[in-house]
């Protein structure tokens, strides 16, 4: 078996084992309801981190707007779910909402990519940062409703929609979307995470992925061997936006009232996802998943410590950064791993 294949299989195995352990804890009633509520967000942030790592680590372009793509995926899928709720079976509806959320995020990725990815330099970071804020503010001020006469859109108020009696408000301005069916659960979230990992890791080990990484490593050389730079930058970025959209779909189907606030979709959320990516190791997909899980759960689990919570959190951030990025420690870590592998090999023989 090739080395890369082995690595990807280990990643799937880690996710599945973690899932089984947590499920057992849940079924055995050993988990507080507070912790249970954290599992789905933990997984969708892990998905967002995988998406962002594709953009930052594999494509080599900094994006500060992945929360914006989550926002697009969340709102578009919530609207689909609200419209179709009751009309078709729940499972089918959720799958449809997921697909539409993903496709619309991908479209937004493409819209941003077409002008920006032709340029060389850090333009993408600035444009995506602005995109995240703009999309959030637009969704905050839109009133959208539907009745038998069709779709109504207003920028003023809910009353201005002038809905008929059978009408339904979809987006209620700053009040957001209420009553999206709660379809997300831990199992579905893990399945979406596995699909995202499957797509991203497969892509890295393929013709397209090599082209994308060659652009990251040396754009000029990559052009000189005939790689279409813009095309492959677009491919990487659009896939990344689409997966972030999938994280958004899980988000919207996990929350009773969703508003486009900074708390959920602001740039600080984008930065938080970037922190997961950087601390998990840029270009290291498995690391992103692990870092997202640890760093999302930690502040919540430390709530009991109250005053010292953020202090411990920041110490963990620093320690993780040192472990992942100090050359000496990385050497030691790799040596230790080799030793363990050898030991396991002897044990098996």
């Amino acid at each position: 078996m090739r080395k890369t294949q082995k690595k990807t299989l280990i990643t799937y195995a880690i996710v599945i084992i973690a899932y089984i352990i947590l499920e057992i804890f849940m079924k055995a009633g050993m988990m507080s309801s507070h912790l249970k509520g954290l599992l789905v967000p933990m997984v969708y942030y892990a998905i967002a981190a995988v998406a962002l790592n594709l953009c930052v680590g594999i494509l080599g372009e900094l994006s500060l707007g992945h929360a914006g793509f989550m926002c697009v995926g969340a709102f578009s899928s919530a609207i689909v779910s609200q419209l179709l709720s009751g009309a078709i079976p729940d499972a089918l509806r959720f799958i449809l909402a997921l697909i539409i959320g993903v496709v619309i995020s991908a479209l937004f990725g493409m819209l941003i990519g077409i002008p920006v990815l032709r340029l060389n330099g850090d333009y993408l970071a600035i444009v995506t940062l602005a995109f995240g804020e703009i999309i959030k503010n637009i969704l905050n001020s839109i009133y959208l409703g539907v009745d038998s006469a069709g779709v109504h859109l207003s920028l003023k108020s809910q009353m201005a929609l002038g809905l008929a009696d059978d009408g339904k408000v979809l987006i209620n301005g700053a009040m957001g979307i209420t009553g999206t069916p709660q379809d997300s659960n831990f199992t579905i979230a893990i399945v979406v995470l596995l699909i995202s990992l499957f797509i991203v890791q497969n892509m890295i080990d393929s013709r397209d992925g090599r082209a994308i990484m060659s652009i990251r490593d040396n754009r000029i050389a990559s052009e000189s061997v005939g790689i279409n730079i813009t095309k492959y930058k677009m491919t990487g970025f659009v896939v990344s936006a689409a997966i972030a959209g999938a994280a958004g779909v899980l988000f919207s189907h996990n929350i009773a009232t969703m508003q486009a606030t900074s708390q959920y979709f602001g740039y600080n959320v984008s930065i938080m996802i970037l922190v997961y990516v950087v601390l998990g190791g840029i270009g290291n997909i498995r690391g992103s998943v692990i870092a997202a899980c640890i760093l999302y759960l930690l502040p919540e689990l430390l709530r009991g410590l109250n005053k010292y919570r953020m202090l411990i959190y920041s110490i963990v951030l620093i320690v993780m950064m040192i472990i992942n990025w100090s050359p000496a420690l990385r050497d030691k870590r790799d040596k230790l791993r080799k030793k363990l592998m050898k030991g396991a090999g002897h044990g098996a023989a």
């Binding site: 090599r210 990484m213 060659s214 990251r216 490593d217 040396n218 000029i220 050389a221 990559s222 000189s224 270009g283």
Partner: peptide, 9 residues
Amino acid sequence: QNIRLFKDL
């Protein structure tokens, strides 16, 4: 002239 390989591949 100055080698341009894809160094992380």
